[in-house]
Amino acid sequence: MAIQFIVNGKQQSVDVPPNMPLLWVLRDTLGMTGTKFGCGMALCGACTVQIDGDATRSCITPVSSVAGKKITTIEGLSSDRSHPVQRAWIEVDVPQCGYCQSGQIMSAVSLLAKNAKPSDTEIDDAMKGNICRCGTYQRIREAVHRAADLHKTEAKPSRPHGTEDALEERALRAGGAA
């Protein structure tokens, strides 16, 4: 029997076993591979998505439990990398291999939605379920602070900050080096 839910604003209907985790429905059935598999046991955070706004480990979430709900994945944060958390991640140049970063970003977005100005300890607390084997934690802290600042300034009329701007940032710039 088909299960229906909304992903990134789009209605989806899938005909899969009801206990199939949302992670695999996203990745294999819907072809949305931005959400990653890391452990399958809610231990690493790579599969983090938002369900009705809450950061959730999709690897242990049976698809039947999201029927009728709104899901946001990394692909749905913005169409042009303009979400403040994405912009902060680009500014601070957080990713290395990048594999954990979808989950890191989704966790950070949830954190900032609840706590506009988190301290280091609050960041650690909210993000400790997300493993980064490349050890980008120091930059994750920095980028969450930066995203908090961007959020704040954007409460005022925001200036557009689209793909091209983000790509322009590839230009030679200090990368946070000591």
């Binding site: 944060l77 790509l167 030679l172 710039r173």
Partner: peptide, 14 residues
């Protein structure tokens, strides 16, 4: 020169 990674943009949006 300290240079930003070229692969970062594609690693923040999946």
């Amino acid at each position: 020169k300290p240079t930003k990674r070229l692969d970062t943009p594609d690693k923040v949006n999946g």
